[in-house]
Design a protein around this nucleic acid. Structure first.
Lengths: 248, 248
DNA sequence: CAGGTGCTCGTCACTCTGACGACAACCTAC
DNA sequence: GTAGGTTGTCGTCAGAGTGACGAGCACCTG
């Protein structure tokens, strides 16, 4: 397409800051895992202005030629060592309150990541420490920026998503038992589930679990050894696995 | 918090374009409605570079002090006259491919809006025409930017959302019949539904529909007059209303 | 070997659903 | 007014899915 004078004018006008106010764009990652039966989120202690010393979700600025998804995975890998292929990554949404960052106008694109229990993360640049915090124990009022709202959205999305998709397997290793998967559901939903009905449901839903031919593994503290499964090919669970609804 | 020299330096550093590359941020609106039994989307014919003459979703740049949600509703109202209170508005997600806009780096936050059948929209500024297009008839390859992907995400989100939430009522007027609501489901899902089972399901799900005390209205071309309902207070449908699954 | 633990399979009552019959309440045509 | 068409609403029934268990299996430790 040849560029006429008219187009050239419009092209240049695109850089008029009055018409197109400049934003910074960041990614923030809600990285969830299940540790010791509890749903945990990865938080970093900031070492830079603003909110120095405060807790925040890992994340950072998107570079000029970087895709949003790539930026999220990149920041994640740099700060925690989580490789993309052992985790589930999905976009959570955009957060763009005009005053969410005191420095400047920032729109943050939040990502939700599920990973199995991982080796201890190491602090990256501009960060004092990195820690897993049970989501129940997070003091929302102490989180930097609007990360309390981002975290809440991530946890709620996770709870809903376990119902109709097989993503819970992303919290487990490559191979896992039905009980391990059940512990994931129990930790995310915060309710106990009947082992027998859970077993019937998960093994009976087509495409959810694929039995691993190899024999059953050891049992840690006694009990019949469990069969191993891998994640199946289904993208959606039919029928869905509904969490028990609290009665009023 | 007093601002030390150190903080001041960091504060100023925030405006270094090498560290914080400038983005433009836009909102794009997937406005869906049901007209003549078909799910339709509002598209505008662009009158400006780039994609002049091409079809696109309505939308525009977010202003410097404007909230994202506000910006979406504002552009929507300006271009179509849809008031926020007669429609359902939710964020769809962020689209930020580095080359989605040939002019500059743009991140677009897409919004999904459901509205009842509306009076004909009027073209706004920088727009040649505004038209309702059945989503089945949209030529995805001719849409500007990545609006084909945005539209596809919006339609898929709408289809999924009808299952577990009462948002389908947003496609109807203040008061509506069960049949009108059923036509919405049929148009969005593209499948016929059994009127008797649909009636049992919708009137039986707690919080979905509230009968209007006033007597039944007229029937247009014959048939027993239908009872009128308003939207109930439920935010989620329990149990969900699952769309019939295609068999393979 | 006894008893504990956790895995897996069964049973049963209940709810929800899809498919359909039947009647009610309106219309228009004759 | 009566016949016949159209749409709304209520009922029925068989089958699938679920919650709440019981019970046996396969490992452990003492």
């Amino acid at each position: 397409m040849s560029r006429s004078d008219e187009h050239e004018q419009e092209f240049l006008a695109a850089y008029d800051p009055r018409a197109f106010p400049p934003f910074a764009v960041t990614v923030d990652v809600v990285l969830l895992t299940v540790r010791e039966g509890r749903l945990c989120v990865l938080l970093v202690e900031r070492d830079t202005h603003p909110f120095r010393g405060g807790l925040a979700l890992p994340g950072g600025f998107v570079q000029a030629d970087e895709d949003l998804d790539t930026a999220a995975v990149e920041r994640l890998e740099n700060e925690t060592g989580v490789r993309r292929d052992v985790a589930h990554v999905e976009q959570l949404g955009a957060f763009g309150d005009p005053h969410r960052d005191p420095r400047m106008r920032v729109v943050s694109v939040a990502y939700l990541v599920f990973a199995p229990d991982l080796p201890a993360p190491r602090p990256g640049s501009r960060v004092r420490s990195v820690q897993w915090v049970p989501v129940e124990d997070v003091d929302a009022a102490r989180l930097a920026f609007d990360h309390d709202a981002v975290l809440a959205a991530g946890v709620e999305r996770a709870r809903a998503k376990l119902e109709y998709s097989p993503v819970a397997t992303a919290f487990c290793g490559e191979e896992f038992t039905v009980a391990e998967l059940r512990h994931v559901y129990e930790a995310v939903w915060g309710v106990p589930l009947d082992p027998r009905n859970f077993h019937r449901k998960t093994t009976g839903t087509p495409g959810f679990l694929v039995p691993v031919g190899s024999p059953a593994p050891v049992g840690p503290g006694g009990g019949r050894p469990a069969a191993l499964y891998r994640r199946g090919s289904a993208a959606l669970l039919h029928p869905a696995m509904l969490r028990p609804q609290r009665e009023d």
